[in-house]
Design a protein around this nucleic acid. Structure first.
Length: 531
RNA sequence: GGGCCAGUAGCCUAGCCUGGAAGGGCGGCAGCCUUCUAAGCUGUAAGUCGCGGGUUCAAAUCCCGCCUGGCCCGCCA
């Protein structure tokens, strides 16, 4: 029986034995046993009996095939038997969940370089996409590229004023944007010019559109490079600009239906919060909320999803609350969820594109890879492709292993390769891979596993629970946690036990390796050839 | 001013949903490469779980207040 089924069986058995509702029984996983509960303590209290005796008597009565259930310190600790462990090893698929989900992630802006700020959405989103796929969902990755809005009116203004003859590369456009915001302090009319150009753009002005197209084209080739390097899946193009026309029509429809109302010349949808959802400015142009709404409506029609996920920073939490309210008023019934994540900021404060205070992702990746390359060269074992895998792995893993919602202060410690890092995980996998290459595979383990072997097997088997929980809570860091635990267990095992010549150990090494491969894939980590 | 989130050893972090047994990493100190890769492993020191109250047999976890930091609070995205 699969581990999660054993958990469920135990829950049912306990509910029956203690006469408690199933949904009041919870387990801790991997802390002191494969899973454990202290429900007996609570129950003992109800009966006014000592918890220790209670646990003892429940433990002896409770019989679940495949489990060794023991009373320890008043807790009920459940251990998979050797047979159950063996059955579960090598099984990290077939979760058979059903459903369709659209995950919106990455969503960079055009005419701006990818900063480390975009990294989180991209990496977390990609990982969630893979986790949901693993669980059996049909997943569409959607890229809501920021390519519309007043800022492009400003950028066109800057381009017209100072950009003549300038190659419209992303870096050059960034300097124009920074210059605009500097100049605007002395020359406030620039703001008005910017709004004017945006109005022209939204009105379909040929010149404005032509300039904007150039921005877009250059940015897209930049994105492609970075996605390739990060191993990001092909994403459905959900650029904001695709929804401009629809948004204008939608806003009209909402007004006619009375869902949206005029307020100070602008059009808004009232909400339960103290601010409304603003859709259209008093100058008649739309703001991003209108395009967000239209986009959600389009997604729903096009893909008929059960769930819409938005992997966007915590700073937009309120926006999504308002947006979802607006969408519900419009009549959208599907589930919508904002998957917020903590902001990356610099030790000196928030990153700001306008002030040019950003760290480019490309620079971070290059630095990571070159540090790894140096280490490899010092050891006389340099490989360009492995350096890339390890360097990028270090950056991704650092990001993914911390709780999603925590803010991150950027330091170059992201690039560490020792301790709880991506390279640590990769290293354990590489060690296992080498052993398998050298000594081959065995068809079956031996009988009567030793303590060390059981210990390793328990860690490996927990991958199913990690993936299930990661999906339920939308938390890739739980998979990262498993990778770390499992790698730690293997490194420990490897140092203390000779693997060659012991069928059980060789077999476990293979189980470890395939599970690691799977878990690493879910986070987008690659296994180097050697390190 | 209002709202949301966070505060766990010198530093970083897990545990908080579902109360009961404070885990890990970095750095420090002391060790381990003639046997499958030392980006590894072992041992050790280091904690008023921000502060104060409450609920409870039991609070890092739940409730209230406060302090500190971050973020958000219609014509930006």
């Amino acid at each position: 029986m699969l581990i999660e089924e054993l958990v469920e069986k135990t829950r049912e058995a306990l509910a029956k034995e203690l006469d408690l509702p199933k949904n009041t029984i919870f387990f801790d996983f991997g802390k002191f046993a494969d899973f454990s509960t202290m429900i007996t303590i609570k129950y003992a209290k109800k009966l006014g009996k000592p918890p220790k005796d209670m646990a003892e008597s429940v433990a002896t009565k409770l019989k679940v095939a495949g489990l060794d259930i023991r009373a320890e310190n008043g807790f009920l600790n459940c251990y998979l038997t050797e047979a159950a462990l063996q059955e579960n090893l090598g099984k990290f698929s077939n979760f058979n969940q059903r459903g369709k989900v659209i995950v919106e992630y990455s969503s960079p802006n055009i005419a701006k370089p990818f900063s480390v700020g975009h990294l989180r959405s991209t990496i977390i989103g990609e990982s969630l996409k893979r986790i949901f796929e693993e669980l059996g969902w049909k997943v569409t990755g959607m890229n809501f590229i920021g390519d519309w809005g007043t800022q492009f009116g400003k950028l066109i203004t800057a381009y017209k004023l100072w950009g003549e003859g300038l190659e419209p590369t992303v870096k050059n456009l960034l300097s124009l944007y920074v210059k605009f915001h500097k100049e605007v302090e002395n020359n406030p009319e620039l703001e008005a010019m910017g709004r004017e150009w945006f109005k022209k753009l939204e009105g379909g002005d040929k010149e404005a559109l032509k300039i904007w197209e150039t921005f877009r084209k250059n940015s897209f080739s930049e994105f492609e490079k970075i996605y390739k390097r990060l191993g990001i899946s092909k994403l459905e193009d959900g650029s904001e600009s695709l929804f401009v026309k629809g948004a204008l029509e939608l806003v009209d429809e909402l007004r006619k239906k009375g869902i949206a109302i005029e307020d100070d010349g602008a059009l808004v949808i009232p909400t339960s919060k103290d601010i409304p959802l603003l859709l259209r400015k008093s100058d008649g142009t739309t703001i991003y909320a209108a395009r967000d709404m239209m986009s959600a409506i389009w997604r729903t029609k096009q893909f008929k999803p059960d769930l819409l996920l938005y992997v966007v920073g915590n700073d937009q939490k309120l926006h999504f609350e308002l947006l979802f309210e607006g969408l519900k008023k419009y009549g959208l019934t599907g589930e919508m969820e904002h998957i917020g994540f903590g902001m990356i900021r610099l030790p000196e404060g928030k990153m700001s594109t306008r002030r040019g205070r950003v760290i480019f992702l490309e620079d971070v990746l290059n630095e990571a890879v070159s540090r790894v390359a140096k280490t490899m060269k010092d050891r006389d074992a340099y490989s360009e492709s492995d350096a890339e895998k390890i360097g990028i792995g270090a950056v991704k893993f650092t990001d993914l292993r911390t709780t999603r919602t925590r803010d991150v202060v950027f330091t170059w410690d992201m690039l560490k390769t020792e301790g709880e890092t991506g390279p640590y995980v990769q290293y354990a996998a590489v060690r296992a891979k080498r052993v398998l290459e050298k000594f081959g595979k065995v068809s079956a383990p031996g009988k009567k596993w030793q303590t060390a072997e059981l210990k390793l097997a328990r860690k490996i088997v927990a991958i199913r629970l990690a993936i299930l929980e990661a999906g339920r809570q939308r938390r890739p860091d739980l998979v990262a946690r498993w990778l770390l635990d499992s790698a730690k267990a293997f490194n420990d095992f490897y140092e203390k036990n000779r693997i060659e010549g012991y069928p059980t150990r060789q077999w476990l090494t293979e189980q470890f390796y395939t599970a690691m491969e799977r878990g690493m894939y879910l986070l987008g980590l690659e296994i180097p050839n050697q390190m």
